[in-house]
Write a protein that binds this DNA or RNA. Structure first.
Lengths: 418, 418
DNA sequence: TGCGCTTTCGCAACAGCGTTGCTTAAGTGG
DNA sequence: CCACTTAAGCAACGCTGTTGCGAAAGCGCA
């Protein structure tokens, strides 16, 4: 009955305030990286009082999510004590079920993948088989990283670091209280969306949940699959519930394009579109600080916009869709032509939504990233009404898996708007 | 320094909680209409405790924004006391500056226009002249309705009701404390976005502000005009500041399409697109409970999406824009053809954003509303991927002016999501 | 008519949020 | 060596929604 917003009623209580502000501070800490941030800049960045930041920081330190990170040089007074995020305080699993493979990424709170796996997948075998295959890959990744039910703390294990080596510049008073190393707490299987920072909730090294990214239509709220093109056997399969039951973890289900968008938003914020060129054309829309899923999780159906009235017929029934034009060019190996068609479609989108930037991804883009970025940017600047140029870049191939993990982490972090 | 969110920092405080919850209750009261609503359903609708609703209601009654509205029949226990919105507790001015006329609507808290005016406007005369003309119309409308600096209370004056007669069904214990009838408080000229409900803020019958809707590009945050097509003399004109200085009232500036969308959202909520067919094609996007303006108030540039690659050249420089195709048909008098082109563009939009419904407006639509609604709905259902059909309807011709006033009122009311 | 039941609703006490006022700590710079 | 500056925390405060409980008010059955 409290402020934990159901869906229609969204009355706020004190807990909502605490959760929001803590998420804001965590978002800033995350953006600050291992160097950490001072309380003054946290206060500046959040609009809160320094004293409020102190109280929130104390709660975060008590929860093990933040730790002191030394002091910065003085600017004439007492040098500020820095605070940093403790990345190994929690992990999220990113799971990508694609048409031919399954990918898994174990991601820490800083957003870094500490373990990744990929394996072939027979998508046509249907939901239960895919759940089983995914669960095995997840368990292997978690076990390999030294986490999971066995209960070994993360920092005791040497992990195959994905990124570069961490700049170990913490000459600090490492007062990290080293919580009881005996067990790893697994959160409640039922998702508790905004109570992540309740005192005592979660534990160091715990798995916070699984974010699952799949292509095709689905319902985000219920976690049930829709009619995946070419795979009618998936329609109506309750993928989220099946994964949650199999793994004993909270699961968030979303389209692959949405997962990538959420992941990219954690890096840079703002409002933008992630455009995916794979089996079809799709887009993830991050607008005004939040992902836009639409009324029925159908937003981002970007490929079936008509670009050429009376053009060739598309599998969707219409004529001259961007998808049929673009994929025909890809099939010919004409990435330049595909990119120009894509550019027109993206320009339509950019004009309609006034996005800050555009990020391209998907297998076709990975095949020739420079071509796509160049051609799309070209069309965009030719079509832009004013002098403003929308930046275009390509996403890494891992954007979807990593973003899937971010679906879980986003519930705790509130990214600072840019 | 408090929770009144600037732009980047959005730390919440108690005041934000109060403001949000009060807005939620006011939104429900507004939706309930003159019949009023019981405390239990307000608690249900907000997710708050009945006791919290009681406290909030007491504040609203003290502020004059809500009043008792009798009792509902018992369901076996003590009959609930009803609460209703007091529409005459405040007014907002809606101002529409179009290319050939100025329109003004004085709107009460219930969203009803209690006075309207329209007059020719020489848009080419530039900003200052338009401001002066608009100010005169506003003053005339306010004086005619018995409000304004003279300070006559609204309920003492017979108003030219725009809608039907109000169903006077209030057999209640009218305990309305009748605040001092001597003066009408005019709010601070500097907008105070979310402190509208501070005890003692605003007064009964007061003007809360002016919402100004104009075509063409502008910056919502700064209130400065951009390059209006065909009227370069408007570029850079600080319309919001000029109006605020001339009128001594807070002013909100936005595109006409956005104003209409906000106004329509107040009626029915949800997420939808308002599509305007006038001098150009534009759209107002109400997504996920909030208007989407985009990074530079440029969202809704709906007309310059390319529908026909290598089609006829548009004034924007591209080829085959929806606008050039649609307006060519309108110029021929071929509303059916224009509507079908519009339908394709709307279908692109609906697929991309997964909206609940589409509302059509603008002069071309007013000329043949049934044709546009029918043809657009036809294209939409032909292109819809699933069985879901997006409802299409036409907006009244007053949608933009009324919505402009709603730009002001929205800061106080939080519409319940649907 | 009387009594039990249901529902409404407000008073009073409460826990928890960020804020304010003030004190103490820990550096820099003349 | 002593102002001066900046940082950080303790304590009190105002305010939020919440909880507990009792009074008020109508229904329905004996």
């Amino acid at each position: 009955m409290k402020g934990s917003g159901e869906e229609s009623g969204r009355g706020l209580g004190l807990d909502a305030v605490r959760s929001h502000n803590a998420g804001l501070v965590l978002g800033l800490l995350r953006a600050a990286g291992p160097a950490g941030a001072g309380r003054a800049e946290l206060a500046e960045g959040t609009g809160l009082t320094p004293q409020a930041v102190s109280k929130i920081s104390a709660r975060l330190r008590a929860a093990g999510l933040a730790a002191p990170a030394g002091r910065r040089a003085s600017t004439g007074g007492k040098p500020p004590g820095l605070l940093r995020l403790v990345p190994e305080a929690g992990y999220a699993v990113g799971l990508q079920l694609d048409r031919d493979e399954v990918r898994v990424a174990l991601v820490d709170l800083a957003g870094r993948a500490v373990a990744t796996r990929r394996a072939p997948l027979d998508f046509a075998a249907g939901g239960p088989a895919a759940v089983e295959a995914a669960a095995r890959e997840i368990e292997a990744a978690v076990a390999g990283a030294g986490l999971g039910p066995a209960g070994v703390r993360a920092q005791d294990v040497s992990l195959p670091a994905a990124g570069g080596p961490e700049p170990a510049a913490h000459p600090a008073t490492a007062t990290e209280p080293a919580p009881a190393p005996d067990s790893v707490q697994v959160p409640d299987p039922v998702p508790a969306p905004d109570s992540a920072l309740a005192p005592g909730g979660y534990g160091t090294g715990a798995l916070w949940g699984v974010g699952c990214a799949v292509p095709g239509p689905l319902d985000h709220r219920s976690g049930v699959m829709g009619r995946v093109t070419g795979h009618p056997e998936w329609e109506g399969f309750p993928l989220r519930a099946a994964l949650a039951a199999r793994l004993g973890l909270p699961v968030v289900l979303d389209k692959d394009t949405n997962a990538a968008a959420v992941g990219l938003a954690a890096e840079s914020g703002g409002s933008f579109a992630y455009v995916h060129v794979g089996t079809g054309l799709g887009a993830g829309l991050f607008l005004g600080g939040a992902l836009h899923r639409g009324a029925r999780t159908g937003a981002g159906e970007f490929g079936h916009q008509v670009l050429l009235l009376d053009g060739p017929r598309c599998r969707c029934g219409a004529r001259g869709c961007a998808e049929v034009l673009c994929l025909a060019a890809v099939a010919r190996g004409d990435h330049g032509g595909a990119a120009r068609v894509l550019g027109e479609a993206v320009a339509n989108l950019a004009a309609l939504l006034d996005v800050d930037r555009v990020v391209l991804g998907g297998r076709a883009v990975e095949a020739a990233p420079e071509t796509y970025v160049r051609e799309v940017a070209e069309v965009l600047s030719a079509r832009a009404p004013g002098t403003y140029r929308v930046p275009v870049r390509a996403a890494p191939a891992s954007a979807v898996v990593t973003g899937a993990a971010e679906l879980v982490l986003t519930e705790t972090f509130t990214p600072p708007r840019t």
